[in-house]
Measured scan of single mutants.
Amino acid sequence: MDVFMKGLSKAKEGVVAAAEKTKQGVAEAAGKTKEGVLYVGSKTKEGVVHGVATVAEKTKEQVTNVGGAVVTGVTAVAQKTVEGAGSIAAATGFVKKDQLGKNEEGAPQEGILEDMPVDPDNEAYEMPSEEGYQDYEPEA
């Protein structure tokens, strides 16, 4: 019985440690998101679009440190934060509304985080759909 109880105690310690790591990862992701939003706020009209992409990228980098179902929630929060940063930029006159959601080359930025393969159960990952990809044929 002692062996059984000791095993359960060790398992509990492992769960607590994993929860603490997840909590730490979420806190880091939130900190990076805040950094990115402050970065966007300090940019001029020309830099705002690039700044919004930076927020998304920093958040995406930190999301990889967070495991399990938390990833889905962090990704949703990050996307809403990026959308909010863009709205703030438009409201303050840093950028025109028609410039939001495009990178410096004018290509749409939507789907940055949505296409990231995420499995809350950590069982399997699927690649994003290939609808947006084109076949590449090298020139002879």
Rank of each mutant, 00 (worst) to 15 (best):
residue 108 P to Y: 04
residue 17 A to R: 12
residue 57 E to V: 05
residue 34 K to M: 02
residue 115 D to C: 05
residue 115 D to Y: 14
residue 135 D to I: 10
residue 103 N to V: 10
residue 16 V to M: 15
residue 109 Q to S: 10
residue 49 V to I: 11
residue 17 A to T: 05
residue 48 V to L: 13
residue 52 V to K: 02
residue 29 A to E: 00
residue 47 G to M: 09
residue 67 G to E: 02
residue 67 G to M: 12
residue 21 K to Y: 11
residue 41 G to Q: 05
residue 129 S to L: 06
residue 114 E to R: 05
residue 26 V to K: 00
residue 96 K to D: 07
residue 111 G to V: 01
residue 82 V to F: 13
residue 82 V to Q: 07
residue 106 G to K: 07
residue 76 A to S: 08
residue 91 A to H: 11
residue 82 V to G: 02
residue 36 G to F: 10
residue 19 A to F: 15
residue 106 G to I: 12
residue 117 P to I: 06
residue 59 T to Y: 13
residue 36 G to H: 15
residue 96 K to S: 05
residue 33 T to G: 02
residue 17 A to I: 04
residue 85 A to T: 05
residue 28 E to T: 10
residue 36 G to I: 15
residue 58 K to F: 13
residue 130 E to A: 08
residue 2 D to E: 02
residue 107 A to E: 11
residue 49 V to P: 01
residue 60 K to D: 01
residue 128 P to T: 11
residue 105 E to M: 11
residue 67 G to P: 02
residue 122 N to Y: 09
residue 5 M to C: 01
residue 84 G to A: 13
residue 68 G to V: 06
residue 16 V to Q: 04
residue 15 V to F: 02
residue 113 L to A: 06
residue 67 G to S: 12
residue 131 E to V: 13
residue 105 E to K: 04
residue 9 S to A: 05
residue 27 A to I: 15
residue 89 A to K: 05
residue 25 G to V: 14
residue 115 D to E: 08
residue 12 K to C: 13
residue 83 E to R: 13
residue 114 E to I: 11
residue 57 E to H: 09
residue 37 V to M: 06
residue 15 V to M: 12
residue 40 V to F: 08
residue 106 G to C: 11
residue 18 A to K: 02
residue 34 K to W: 13
residue 27 A to N: 06
residue 56 A to H: 14
residue 131 E to C: 13
residue 53 A to F: 12
residue 85 A to E: 02
residue 126 E to L: 10
residue 37 V to A: 09
residue 31 G to Y: 09
residue 38 L to H: 03
residue 131 E to M: 02
residue 99 Q to S: 08
residue 110 E to A: 03
residue 48 V to E: 00
residue 43 K to N: 01
residue 20 E to F: 14
residue 22 T to S: 05
residue 56 A to Y: 12
residue 45 K to E: 00
residue 68 G to L: 10
residue 130 E to T: 10
residue 111 G to K: 12
residue 58 K to V: 07
residue 134 Q to W: 13
residue 137 E to Q: 06
residue 94 F to T: 04
residue 7 G to V: 14
residue 137 E to T: 11
residue 90 A to H: 14
residue 123 E to A: 07
residue 136 Y to E: 03
residue 19 A to L: 15
residue 80 K to W: 10
residue 52 V to W: 12
residue 18 A to E: 00
residue 86 G to P: 05
residue 82 V to K: 08
residue 87 S to P: 04
residue 62 Q to R: 09
residue 61 E to C: 07
residue 82 V to R: 10
residue 45 K to P: 01
residue 46 E to I: 02
residue 41 G to Y: 13
residue 116 M to R: 13
residue 62 Q to D: 01
residue 57 E to K: 08
residue 117 P to V: 13
residue 140 A to Y: 11
residue 139 E to K: 08
residue 39 Y to K: 09
residue 42 S to T: 04
residue 32 K to N: 02
residue 76 A to W: 10
residue 94 F to R: 01
residue 94 F to S: 06
residue 132 G to W: 14
residue 21 K to C: 03
residue 28 E to P: 01
residue 139 E to V: 12
residue 116 M to C: 07
residue 41 G to R: 03
residue 8 L to S: 00
residue 85 A to I: 10
residue 94 F to E: 02
residue 84 G to H: 08
residue 33 T to F: 08
residue 63 V to K: 01
residue 2 D to M: 03
residue 59 T to H: 02
residue 100 L to W: 02
residue 76 A to V: 11
residue 114 E to N: 11
residue 65 N to E: 06
residue 89 A to L: 10
residue 60 K to R: 09
residue 29 A to T: 05
residue 108 P to C: 06
residue 16 V to N: 04
residue 124 A to D: 13
residue 130 E to Q: 08
residue 91 A to C: 11
residue 67 G to A: 15
residue 39 Y to N: 06
residue 72 T to N: 08
residue 14 G to L: 12
